[in-house]
Design a protein around this nucleic acid. Sequence first.
RNA 1: GCGAGAGUGGCGGAACUGGCAGACGCGCGAGACUUAGGAUCUCGUGGGCAACCGUGGGGGUUCAAGUCCCCCCUCUCGCACCA
Length: 865
Amino acid sequence: MENYEHHQLEKKWQQIWEAQGSFRVSEDPLRPKYYCLEMFPYPSGRIHMGHVRVYAIGDVVARFKTMRGYAVLHPMGWDAFGLPAENAAIEKGVHPDIWTRENIAYMRSQLKRLGLSYDWDREIATCEPDYYKWNQWLFLKFFEKGLAYKKRSAVNWCPSCETVLANEQVEEGRCWRCETEVVQKELEQWFFRITAYAEELLRDCDRLTAWPARVLSMQRHWIGKSVGVEVDFPLAEPLGDLAALRIFTTRQDTIYGATFMSVAPESPLVEQMIAGREQAPSVREFVARVSRQDKVLRTALEHEKEGVFTGAYAINPFTKERIPIWVANFVLYEYGTGAIMAVPAHDQRDFDFASKYKIPIRLVIQNPERTLREDHLKAAYEEQETAGVLVNSGQFSGLSVADAKARLVEFIKQQEFGRPTVNYRLRDWGVSRQRYWGTPIPIVYCETCGIVPVPLADLPVELPKDVPFTGNGASPLLHDESFLRTTCPKCHGPARRETDTMDTFVDSSWYFLRYCSPHYELLPVERAKADYWMPVDQYIGGIEHAVLHLLYARFFIKALRDLGLTKADEPFTSLLTQGMVCKETYRCETHGWLFPSDLVEDEKGGWKCKHCGQPAERGRVEKMSKSKKNIVDPEHLVNAYGADTARIFSLFAAPPEKDLEWSDAGVEGAYRFLGRVWRLVNGLAGIFDEKKPVGPSTQVTELRRLTHRTIKKVTEDVDREFQFNTAIAALMEFVNGLYKFEAEGKAGTERESFQEAIETLLILLSPFAPHMSEELWARTGHDMMLRHVAWPAYREDMIKSDILTIPVQVNGKLRSKLVVPAEWTKAQILDASLADEKVAEWVRGKTITKQIYIDKRLVNIVVEG
RNA sequence: GCGAGAGUGGCGGAACUGGCAGACGCGCGAGACUUAGGAUCUCGUGGGCAACCGUGGGGGUUCAAGUCCCCCCUCUCGCACCA
């Protein structure tokens, strides 16, 4: 028998698939559609194990759905703009365009070597003018509708990437990409008004029932809706046009307990309030000191609460008391109105602040036990759920917190003290990037006309290629006169182009729509095609995009729907967030992280550092990364074992949503399994020389039962929950069973059933290990490509067994197993149970109090004494 | 602190609505075939001599609990002064 030459065999089938255009797809009115999409990669240079995993998952789904009769859209493309290309240009002197294209070419060939079933005719790269042209088109439409606007504000600035970052792109105060600490900078920037969709984005989370709860919870939290009121506290002495201090609160029920006000240091109100007062110098000093502090540190919960009195007073509209206005470091300028009423008795932050500055604390909510004493409070009483009752609150005293909240909203409205308000944590999305390798923002600045959008007909605004990359900071676009200088589309006078480019998350916010009609020239998407394919039925990608890409894409689809480009209002019906690929790490005290090749075995079977001989400490199992030196290059894996093994390994080792720990032994196991399939089928190929199965025989045998049970198990595991690991386990059991039956000579005595079994095995295996399946399929005399073979249906009558094995328990403990004919009644089975020797032993001399019988599954005899 | 998720053999992991805990794979042990095998095949493999004990710990519900309820512990992830 020939050996399993994966190299040659995989190459052969990849060529055949390519030559035949096997994976091309078009709209088909006769079949249901299925859009299967994996997040497209950034063309960094080479694929890594994470790519292998996510694309193997997607490929199983796509191939499975195709064989189940769906028209499956399964495209691939490149998220091709971004900073690494620019850094490569600076470091290696290669133009980002060339660097990116070379990477794409190489990675495309790597993906093809994995045997992924993509319709490559639909390939897109976001750095192509015929893609980013539509980014610009969409930007202009957004601009027209007021969804894109420019404003000056404090923004997150990454000093290392030398660009602005959106709020979503800052993680623990650091840049999501390079982990450099982010600083605040005051800049004029373009924003997308994602907040216009805050309510819909939040509400529709409820409709995304096929998304992981974790992702939805993160999105809900990020949007952060809070319902409350804005209340105007009149100033005791009006200051120019400033007559009142407006605050936002969700705790209007505590308003009688407000004993001071706090304003954010950044607020322009501060200057207005202190002008000409003796407090002015100390307030200015405080504001300056706070604004110099690191924002992350300053906004950490543990950070000490500090503030300074402004000298101004406001009037509490309810109590008519004069209460002092402070500036406090913990008040956020960006949230609400940038000012709060402070209720020390019922807010811990205010409590800490009031205690520090000896501001009165007034109790206005009494706990159900009535044990709170205003002069002995050790902490704020913040409880809202229990039956607390209002006290010291005028006409509202005696009400529960919930009742008081509702009544106060009404009263505030009626008295025109303020208005009900909803606030969101979500901020508008800053999309300007001070970088070269991105989509130019299609705006010109004219001395006479101001901000002027580039006319749609003039798109694309092409990124100039011939620019120098000096690495001295600013974007090369700033110095490219031929790009910069233009004429105003309105007045034809001299004008200057916007030099900022768009956040690359704009590119990925709608690429799934472009795949529906990738070559369409009139609009970003061809409406009919988008209506056919959208929404994406199954989206697969990493959890790291839970609030980045996944939120932006949801916003985009809603905005595009409102532009009439699609009827979908959610982009992804079902979402699978696959886990990371991890591997153990090793460290040496002197040399830091160690590659496996830096390790030598010591006398005791442990590891030591090759360079210094010190013991190498086995670190934690961590996500594969270059810096931790625990990466495995998929190319080596594919060279040594083949794509089918790489796929089987990454699908079998863990369920898709969990982290997968790399294991050399696991790869060997996957390879061994494929070897078993190879030898089994090749050894039996002869049984196909004689006539094909004449059709489903009615005979039920152990062999046929195994075949049909396997169909059921694999189908359900793949279709229902994406449990590829257990699906593969079922295939392994199937193969083990076939070896056993073969050894019993059934290939001869039950030839037709064996043919059915082998054919079933190859069909079921084909989404997981397509190359080997296709090869063996051809070797067993089949002409049609597996892809066009219908996925088998199992037959219920084949699964049923005519004998049952019933476990028998005595007092809940397994004592015996009964093998009985399937048609036996409950009474017969119970009689047989009691007659069973082993059971009798446990029952003897005792009284039977109960006999539990679960149909066809279990007997439990309960005894006493 | 708030929110989400997880804890099962030596390891990765199975177990549908409560019903045989540990499928499948790795590892390990024994054997077969071999000049040889790190190839392949077969058998065994939670612990314990046993009664029994075993799904992070402690209670509970039930004929029956990995699964349901209460309390606690640990870990991972996300958000973190949002008024």
